[in-house]
Design a protein around this nucleic acid. Structure first.
Lengths: 202, 202
DNA sequence: CCTACCGATCGGTAGG
DNA sequence: CCTACCGATCGGTAGG
C-alpha cells in the first residue's frame, strides 16, 4: 500500500498510457466534486481543468447529475474491487478485516482521482439524486458489515455503533490527514488498534 | 402537507419567549447551512424558512459570507461555553475529558439550531472565508487538545492521531446518528470506551 | 470542440 | 419588509 506515484496530476493509468479525454473529464470532475462538493462545482470549473469550455463537456456527459452518479459509482466499485481482491486469499477473519481497513484507508488518503475522497458529503446533492447514491453506498457498506460480523465482537461494545464508528473513521480520515509524518498504513495501524483489531496477535 | 397558516415551526427559546426576527433568521440559516452546506443554501432559501423574501434579509445581515461567519462563530462559542461550564467543577482529568466529550456529542446530535451540526464541511465555502473559519476552529480544538493532554496517553497510540480521531469521531457522529435506539450519552459511552476513557473506574 | 445563446437562479441594491 | 431590478453565473442546447 506504499504510494510511490508522484504528486503530479495528469495521472496516467496503471499501464502508463495517456488518459483519454473522457477519462480526463471524469478525473477532473472527481477531484473537484471531492474538494468542493456537488453544488460548489460548476460545469465550467470542470471544463477549465481539462482545457475545454463548459458547453463542450456535454459531448462526454449527459448532465451534471449523471456525471456525479457516474463518478460516485465508479469510485465505490473501484474501492469494492480493490478490497475484494486484496482479501481474496486471506482466511483469518481478523486479517481480512484488517486488510480491508488498510485498503479503504489507503484509497481515502491517496490523491488518486479515480476514487478520490470517496464522495463523503452528499449534503449539497439535490434531493432526487441523493437517494440513489445512498442506495449504492449501502451496498458497499454491506460488504464491510459482513467483514466486521465475521470477527468476534469487542466486549461491551454495541455492534452497530462499532461498525458505524469504524467506517466513519476510515472515511473521514482524509479531512485531517496530511502526508509526510505518517504513512497511510501507519495511520491504519492506529485505527485498527483503537478498534481492537490486532492482526498477527503476537 | 397541512397548510394552515404558517407551516413554520416558530420554535421558542428555552425561556418560552418568541425568538426575535433576527434570531429566527440566524436559526433558519444555521439549519440550512448545516443541512446542505454553504454553496447549496441560497439567501432566498433562508428567507423562505422565516417567511421573508430574499432581499428583505439584508436588513438583518450584511452578506451571505458575513452571515455564515456569524453562525459559525456563534456555534463554536456556544459549544466552548457549554463545555467550559460543564467541566468547571471537575478536577479529575479523565472525568473532565469524558464530560467534555459527552457535551460535545450532545451538541452535535441535538437538532438545536443554535449550535446545529457545528459546521462540519467547509468544502463549499469560498477560498477567502475558509481560512478565517479554520482559525476559529483551531482555537476550539486547542481547548480539546489540552483536555486530552491532561490524561495519561494510551500505550502504543500516537497522541496526535489519537486526538484527531477522537475529535473527528465526535464531530461526524451526526452524519449517521438516528434518534431512537440509543441516547446521545449512550453513544458517548461507546466512543469513550473505544478511546480508553473510562471514568469512574468502577 | 467553439460560438453564441437560452431561461433560471444567484447575491445583492435602490427606493420607498 | 416588498417591489423591482442589477450583473453575474448557472446548467444546458443549437448549429456548425
Amino acid at each position: 500500500m506504499t504510494a510511490r506515484h508522484d504528486t503530479q496530476d495528469r495521472s496516467m493509468e496503471a499501464a502508463g498510457r495517456e488518459p483519454s479525454r473522457e477519462e480526463a473529464v471524469l478525473n477532473a470532475a472527481a477531484a473537484l466534486f471531492a474538494e468542493k462538493g456537488y453544488a460548489a462545482t460548476s460545469i465550467r470549473d470542470i471544463g477549465e481543468r481539462v482545457g475545454l469550455l463548459g458547453g463542450s463537456l456535454y459531448h462526454y456527459i449527459k448532465s451534471k447529475d449523471a456525471l456525479f452518479v457516474r463518478i460516485h459509482d465508479r469510485a465505490l466499485q473501484s474501492a469494492e474491487d480493490a478490497i475484494r481482491a486484496g482479501i481474496a486469499d486471506i482466511e483469518d477473519p481478523v486479517q481480512r478485516l484488517a486488510s480491508a481497513c488498510r485498503i479503504l484507508l489507503a484509497i481515502q488518503l491517496a490523491p488518486d482521482s479515480l476514487t478520490m475522497p470517496l464522495m463523503n458529503d452528499l449534503g449539497s446533492v439535490p434531493e432526487g439524486l441523493r437517494e440513489r447514491l445512498i442506495e449504492r453506498r449501502d451496498a458497499f457498506e454491506t460488504m464491510f458489515a459482513e467483514l466486521i460480523a465475521a470477527v468476534p465482537p469487542v466486549a461491551g461494545r454495541d455492534p452497530d455503533i462499532y461498525r458505524l464508528l469504524l467506517l466513519t473513521t476510515l472515511n473521514t480520515a482524509s479531512n485531517w490527514y496530511r502526508p509526510g509524518r505518517l504513512t497511510s498504513d501507519e495511520v491504519a495501524d492506529q485505527i485498527l488498534a483503537t478498534y481492537g483489531i490486532e492482526p498477527g496477535g503476537a
